[in-house]
Computed example of a mutant assay.
Amino acid sequence: MTPLVFIDGDQGTTGLQVRQWLSGRTDLRVLQLPPEHRKSTAHRAEALNDCDLALLCLPDDAARGAVALVRRPGVRVIDASSAHRTAPGWVYGLPEMEPAQAARIAAAARVSNPGCYPTGALLLLRPLVEAGLVPADHPLAIHAISGYSGQGRAGLQAHEGAAAASAPPLQVYGLGLQHKHVPEIQQHAGLAHAPAFVPAYGHYRQGIVLTIALHQRLLPAGVTAAHLHAALAMRYAGQPCIELQPLGGDVDAQRIDPQTLNGSNRIRLAVFGQERTGQVLLAAVFDNLGKGAAGAAVQNLDLMLGLSAAHTQGPFTAVPDLRAA
């Protein structure tokens, strides 16, 4: 029997992206509620219990409520919100996080999709912490800039709606240093202390660039950029969704375009080093709507349903532009 998938919240930014990515596939069926039933708890509960896999593209509280509506034991759930990313009983949906993670996801009944920023931070940090190259108590500061679609419909409206001309070119936020992604990063990276996390939205639609600066004097003796690069290369060898940029070259001439992997479920990692100052920069670039959200959800869906991984590579169609509406 072809598996039946229900996307609860298919009109939001992530939900629309997932729905478009799944369109045209013949190896699964997508259950959609008519517009007049989308906010009906009774109709949603029926759909949640009729499907084989429910993909929740909802705010945190609504996602918790949706999980409570699932009564049939055979229903499997992927939650794209941040409600369950550190919760017991949920498998963290980052397949490349460690060698056995994809198998855990494939066998799980409850999977929590990772956050967009944590995806980049964890894929950079976890292998290095596990290898002892970055101490678990290292004082970390993580900086990231996302396209405004990371803010959801509010971001799309602000930058593509009637008042788009007054939208800020860059908006740094989370200045209280209590962003909801911090516990997720700390737990899954194996950090002893919460990192300082400074996110921002840029005046472009989608794509993330995330950087983490390290000081070699605070790393174990003898650890260099080359050691960090080699550890990442070993961890991600053969992973189709992860690219590792070669080490070396004219680093000062290099630039990072946050939009370079838009429309895909891939992420590019890089290590830059300056021996004179003893400084290292870790970097990740990926699509906040791809590997940072909908692409990751489809990747987890395919793992859980035992379907072809070829669907997770992209490209996919962007969410509608409000200026064309």
Rank of each mutant, 00 (worst) to 15 (best):
A194V: 00
T13A: 14
H181K: 00
D79P: 13
L175E: 13
D287H: 11
P3R: 07
A194G: 00
A54C: 08
L170V: 10
D257R: 08
Q11W: 13
L322S: 15
Q11T: 15
R72C: 05
N300F: 05
A47N: 01
A293I: 10
D302E: 11
S166C: 00
W90V: 09
V30K: 13
Y92K: 01
L53H: 02
Q216W: 01
L307F: 11
V134E: 04
H203E: 04
L16S: 13
P183A: 03
R217P: 06
L261C: 15
H215S: 12
Q186P: 00
P114R: 06
H179F: 00
V18I: 15
D50I: 01
V111M: 03
R205L: 06
Y92P: 03
E130F: 01
P35Y: 12
V271A: 03
G12S: 09
L232F: 12
L305F: 10
R104H: 03
C57P: 02
H193E: 10
G222P: 07
P220Q: 11
I142F: 05
L125S: 09
P35H: 12
V91M: 08
T119I: 07
G155I: 07
A167K: 06
M97E: 06
E96H: 13
I7D: 08
Q254G: 06
A42P: 04
A131S: 05
L4Y: 00
Q187E: 08
D79Y: 10
V18T: 05
A121L: 10
P246A: 10
H159S: 07
A87E: 03
Q245S: 04
H179S: 00
V172Q: 09
L269G: 02
T13G: 07
V172T: 11
Q239H: 15
R72T: 12
Q101M: 06
G155F: 07
G9R: 00
R268Q: 12
D50N: 09
A296D: 12
N49L: 09
H188T: 02
V111L: 01
A109C: 09
P183C: 03
L219E: 07
F6P: 02
L125W: 07
V298E: 07
R64C: 14
V172E: 10
Y148Q: 10
L301W: 09
T41E: 13
D257A: 09
H179E: 01
H215A: 13
E160T: 05
S146A: 15
T86C: 07
P59L: 14
A221W: 05
E160H: 06
L31Y: 03
Q259W: 04
A231L: 02
Q299D: 08
R29W: 02
P169T: 09
G12N: 05
H188Q: 09
A136K: 10
Y173P: 08
P183F: 02
T2K: 15
Q101Y: 02
Q245A: 10
L22P: 02
A154K: 15
Q254A: 11
Q259I: 06
D50R: 12
V75N: 03
A162D: 01
V77L: 14
E184G: 00
W90P: 05
V70W: 01
